[in-house]
Design a protein around this nucleic acid. Structure first.
Lengths: 229, 229
DNA sequence: ACCTGAACACCGTTCAAGT
DNA sequence: ACCTGAACACCGTTCAAGT
């Protein structure tokens, strides 16, 4: 990934895209703390001030990562489908994009309304919710809460990613399981009994299936209580 | 809040509690970035290395903040109540504690299972969910997702807190509303129509009421699909 | 037991300057 | 247009030392 500074004396100019992509790769492999102006610059064989020509500051660089993630979310067109199936598709599309980037997903949390792709996503969710019969205000509230929840499902995934570092992931999961299992059974009967699922429940697809069911079921329940038009 | 270094020549020794409390106050008033070993130390009229006697490092200090927050969550005893009402009480209790600390709440996200008070909370949620008929595995998954969602509802609250800085809050909300309202109405019909609720929906209690309804409704829907015992 | 002083490696940002 | 060099203020951490 790193571009040695010696092997290409005539480097082509950086682009915002390249910078954002290497920042995202850094977040994926070493976490958000590793996303540093200086380290990103080093990846490109450039001094760290070079990035300030492309971004006004680090905050704008992080905005760029969030925008990049939002832009990848493609909600499949499903014109003939019911609103609740379309909602499920939309939530799945978000999860599919964010899951590989548990560290960087954090950056999307406060940036939905300040990125173009985030606004496009919001627009689509509002459309689905309006179709379900919710008012503009209700749709705004529910869309925000769905975004926050989906993002949190992904960022809540602790430690190293299973995809990037499977053996590191395994070791961390085993350690957590052992710690939970060793707790006082009198004080924590349910925790000790469910030590393994608690420690590793975010690892497999069923975790996200359950999350989608929780959210979609909640929205359906709220829709069912709406006054009939 | 700051303790001048001159006014008490015989300072009583620091305690972890005091350090954690001033760190939390700093997060509340200026955000997580302001929570700095050096600034906390200055609040107490002490050099920054003094904190290293009380904490092994900054990470442990942040653990302390999370622990402190979890410890304040008191789920009311409600022995005779149905499981879904007790679930609602438990979620409300979490929200009540976390809402005043939108910045610091972020710290609780990955620390539920590594803090004593977080484990106590987990135990109580698992108890409620087991009573609803979910298996240990299902309860672990759902409890985790409920935690993540509630925390995200609070941390998603952008900008300055309404309680700590009402006029700053108002100004930020107005700016966001104006920005959303000025978007292209052809591309963003629903966003522009709901500009105000989108920009400020996290401000009032109904936002959190809606969030609780969403989550509780989702869990009820999942419980309703369980095979009858 | 509780805190200080000096030192270190690292960070984001500014500003003038180079090509 | 695109990048460098030097400088600055700030950060977390270590380690030996003080009381």
């Amino acid at each position: 990934m790193a571009r040695a500074s010696g092997d290409d004396r005539q480097r082509e100019p950086l682009s915002r895209q390249e910078i954002v992509r290497s920042a995202l790769a850094l977040a994926d492999s070493e976490g958000l703390d590793a996303v540093t102006v200086r380290r990103i610059a080093a990846e490109h064989g450039v001094t760290h001030m070079a990035l300030y020509w492309h971004f006004r500051g680090k905050e704008q660089l992080l905005d760029g990562i969030a925008e990049y993630l939002f832009a990848q979310i493609e909600i499949p067109p499903a014109a003939g489908e019911s609103w609740d199936r379309r909602l499920l598709f939309a939530l799945s599309a978000m999860l599919a994009v964010l899951r590989p980037h548990p560290a960087a997903a954090q950056l999307t949390q406060g940036r939905v309304l300040s990125s173009d792709a985030g606004l496009r996503l919001t627009e689509q969710f509002l459309g689905i919710l309006r179709e379900a019969g919710f008012s503009g205000e209700q749709s705004a509230v529910i869309a925000t809460q769905l975004f926050m929840s989906v993002i949190a499902f992904v960022t809540g995934h602790p430690g190293p990613s299973r995809l990037d570092d499977p053996e590191g992931y395994e070791a961390a999961a085993r350690t957590r399981t052992a710690l939970l299992g060793a707790l006082d059974q009198a004080r924590f009967p349910n925790v000790t009994a469910a030590a393994a699922p608690l420690a590793r429940c975010t690892e497999d697809a069923s975790y996200y299936d359950s999350g989608l069911e929780l959210l979609a079921g909640g929205v359906r329940a709220m829709a069912a209580r709406l006054p009939q038009p």
